[in-house]
């Protein structure tokens, strides 16, 4: 069994420092890895990222993150990445990492993702350059996520995004803003590989559980949705490929 802790949208700044720490101190008792599903900072300054590093660094388990839209707002992404990297937090964007848990290789592929909407109500690559650029951005990001998932050499695959790959976990949000909360292209990318679990944030008023059209379980771990420091998902043995289970 692999135990995955996850939370998104923690929006850390100085005023939040220490709030998560008591729960994080006991995290290694409950989980083997912590996933951070974007919007780590309030508006994407290097100073806020240093607060994230203080709060989520040195946990004793690997911490793997993607950035969110808030983490881009002040155009300080290089400084944000440096601060997180200095704390040993792995930040994914179109790539992946593998963590070994009791001999099982857990592969996590991640992207921030982007919007565009869902089947029947999605934006199209048509018309003004701005509109085409918007849709192309999501398409390119989704392609990178799919490639990263398919290329993983591991026993269990998990997809980590900030934007949602399905509309299910947006239930509770106004329908009018769904196109700004996610894209079916991310779901299609997740379904292109044998993914065991997809984790995202971004939708503060959304709901916890959903499923891609291909049957991959999706969990919205935005902090205001889960209302706890992190959620823990225990992936049972039948999510682990037969080669890993048999020790080959």
């Amino acid at each position: 069994m692999i135990r995955i802790a996850a939370v998104g949208d923690v929006h850390i700044d100085r005023d939040v420092l220490g709030r998560f720490r008591p729960a994080l101190e006991e995290l290694p008792e409950h989980a083997d890895v912590l996933l951070l599903a974007g919007d780590l900072t309030r508006h994407g300054t290097e100073a806020e990222a240093k607060c994230v590093a203080t709060e989520f660094g040195g946990l004793g388990v690997p911490v793997i993150a993607v950035l969110g839209n808030h983490d881009h707002h002040c155009d300080e992404v290089p400084g944000v990445l440096a601060a997180l990297g200095d704390a040993g937090i792995t930040v994914l964007e179109g790539d992946s990492t593998v963590v070994r848990v009791d001999g099982v290789r857990l592969g996590v592929a991640g992207v921030k993702g982007f919007g565009g909407g869902f089947a029947g109500r999605c934006a199209s690559e048509f018309g003004e350059p701005e509109m085409k650029a918007f849709v192309r951005t999501t398409g390119a990001v989704a392609e990178r996520l799919g490639a990263a998932l398919r290329d993983l050499d591991c026993d269990v695959r998990v997809a980590l995004t900030h934007y949602s790959p399905v509309p299910d976990t947006l239930a509770g949000e106004p329908l009018e803003i769904y196109p700004f909360l996610g894209s079916y292209l991310l779901g299609q990318a997740i379904d292109s590989a044998p993914t065991a679990l997809a984790v995202h944030g971004h939708a503060h008023h959304g709901s916890e559980r959903g499923r891609t059209p291909g049957g991959v379980r999706v969990r919205n771990v935005a902090h205001p949705v889960i209302k706890q420091a992190y959620s823990v998902f225990n992936l049972a043995a039948d999510n682990v490929s037969s080669s890993a289970a048999s020790g080959i």
């Binding site: 709030r19 729960a23 409950h30 209302k227 706890q228 959620s231 998902f233 225990n234 999510n239």
Partner: peptide
């Protein structure tokens, strides 16, 4: 938003 440790895990 509350920030306590979870009291249970979800079994998948």
């Amino acid at each position: 938003t509350r920030a306590a440790a979870p009291t249970e895990a979800e079994e998948l």
